[in-house]
Design a protein around this nucleic acid. Structure first.
Lengths: 331, 331
DNA sequence: ATGAAAGCGCTAACAG
DNA sequence: CTGTTAGCGCTTTCAT
């Protein structure tokens, strides 16, 4: 391969100036068709590729987006990332992906990395105790669009893209009521997260409005194992629930462990409803009925909004992705 | 934030030359402690960050690795990526992640992107009909280390990091023999991939050596759905298998769909063994017994090897991650 | 239609 | 200990 081709080398070979070569390669109207052809041929032959760093240094555009998530290996984020990557590519952008591990310090460090690499925009799902909201508004002010997704700081005036948390949870509650369940075991996630609060409140509101005909046992579980135990406890009690609701895949996994172990028939012995992107629900038989929250769709919306911002920064917008019921056979 | 600080601005404020400022910031021994202090203070105040593009243009080092996988949202790759990201960060490297979607053309395009962005090294799991092996050896020759992982082109003299494919498959076969199964439905992946060839051959070798007491039906399935159908067909035949072996999670998912639908008891009616990282097997009850292949561990090995290459390029090495049997209750 | 020249921000000889 | 200079590869204004 020798040394990579540069404009200079091409220009020397052709006895042209660097600028002419540059223009020819860009189809500048000033350049004659003849020279364009010659230049392009030689460029192809020499496998010329513009040096992104020189371009960026000159233009102050990197054609790279930063994307910060708590963790890549997570059923939700990986589909989000996947979607963003595919769409970004169509417009010539690449992705620099960083993990914060839910650590505010790491998150701040990631943000610095983004700045260092002069990313053209940032997608971020913030850590629980984020320190970075100030930093992020600075970026925004200095012309780097920031799109918050999924986990969004409270009360922020910025572009945000979220699932319809309340809507999903009330849809879940309504669905459960429709099927005339008597006793629901409702499993929610980490009680400190705003997503948990929102979903729980919306869910319980609907149940409460319906009057007292349905009994509800609520648990907040930090992980799959706690969900497994909570379910086991509920099944062992004299007043066994006839339905389990799980606000996330993780909880569903835990609950299913117990239910399968107990040898219960779904939905005859116990029915199930989850909020999920559909992957885990599809693994079981019958497939679990779920309220869809698609990282993929969210990703598409996020990149769309980002590209709008690339054109011109407009007033911040809070976008909410509606959710829908996907019927499996678990209820 | 105004305009970002530069060496020039700092030097003007302090009436020093740009180079002195540059050196001071780097703790160059030539510079007096006094100036160092002054420079550093002002730099901090002005929130100076070196412009990565200028640095890269100068030094021809980007501190970025390219990572190309068929798909990010894949149980195996996401844990691999996660591991690489965490380790790379410790050494000041970031990751540019690209998806090939198993499309050789996209893969080649991704490689170009890597080149364009002057990545310092490339991790790649190649697409089935990769066109890129030549391109990749060129990169290697021109000083960009390439680490192949998981899916590796046949007969290549390069750094490769793989699961112990043969070992895992023969371990699987031995396990199945140990349990005295009579008729095995063996599901393998895309027949064009070397990983499939290796696993299939090793598996069948062990079976063959054992003599003819066990019947084996072999299928190559391109995806979960084909595995589902192949399993359904096998279950419907007069000569129903008493065991299913799946060389990957995807096939396991397909096979399990059919088995659960048929209402078969595991392991009484039919037993199961898979090669997996353990996530999917853990979702079922009884948990599926599997031969472990950890993306996380593989990732750690890959980045370790890459960093060795950053020091100095040495002779290519084929690294193999040993596998082990994890007992569930499915056999 | 083409060229010359300046400069993006930084590093690294070389020269004092 | 500090400054001067050249140049990485490219874009872009201003000439011609």
């Amino acid at each position: 391969m020798g040394q990579p081709a540069t404009l200079k080398k091409i220009s020397e070979q052709l006895n042209l100036s660097i600028s002419t070569v540059s223009r020819a390669l860009k189809n500048h109207p000033d350049i004659s068709e003849n020279t364009k052809r010659k230049v392009k041929e030689l460029a192809a032959l020499m496998e010329y590729e513009p040096n992104a760093y020189a371009v960026n240094l000159r233009t102050n555009k990197s054609k790279v987006f930063g994307l910060i998530v708590p963790a890549i290996s997570n059923m939700f984020y990986d589909s989000f990332i996947s979607a963003v990557e595919v769409e970004a590519r169509k417009f010539g952008y690449s992705l620099m992906i960083l993990q914060s591990g839910d650590d505010p310090l790491l998150e701040a460090e990631n943000l610095k990395l983004c700045k260092l690499n002069r990313v053209d925009g940032i997608f971020i799902s913030v850590a629980p105790d984020t320190l970075s909201t100030q930093l992020l508004s600075k970026y925004r002010e200095s012309g780097i669009p920031v799109i918050f997704f999924d986990k969004v700081p409270d009360a922020i005036n910025a572009d945000t893209i979220c699932m319809a948390d309340e809507e999903a949870a009330s849809l879940a509650a309504h669905t459960i009521l429709k099927y005339k369940k008597k006793h629901v075991l409702a499993l929610f996630g980490n009680a400190d997260l705003s997503i948990t609060k929102k979903r729980k409140q919306a869910f319980l509101n609907v149940i409460a409005q319906h009057g007292g005909k349905i009994k509800t046992s609520v648990h907040c579980c930090k992980n799959a194992d706690e969900a497994r135990l909570a379910t086991a406890e509920a099944l062992a009690s004299r007043n066994r629930p006839d339905h389990v609701f799980c606000m996330s895949d993780e909880l569903l996994i835990g609950a299913m462990k117990t239910i399968l172990r107990a040898g219960l028939q779904i939905p005859q012995d116990i029915s199930i409803l989850a909020i999920s992107n559909g992957f885990i629900p599809g693994l079981f038989y019958p497939e679990i009925t779920y309220i869809e929250t698609s990282g993929f769709e969210l990703g598409k919306l996020a990149i769309k909004r980002m590209l709008e911002n690339m054109e011109s920064i407009t007033a911040p917008k809070a976008i909410i992705l509606p959710s829908r019921l996907v019927e499996g056979g678990s209820i």
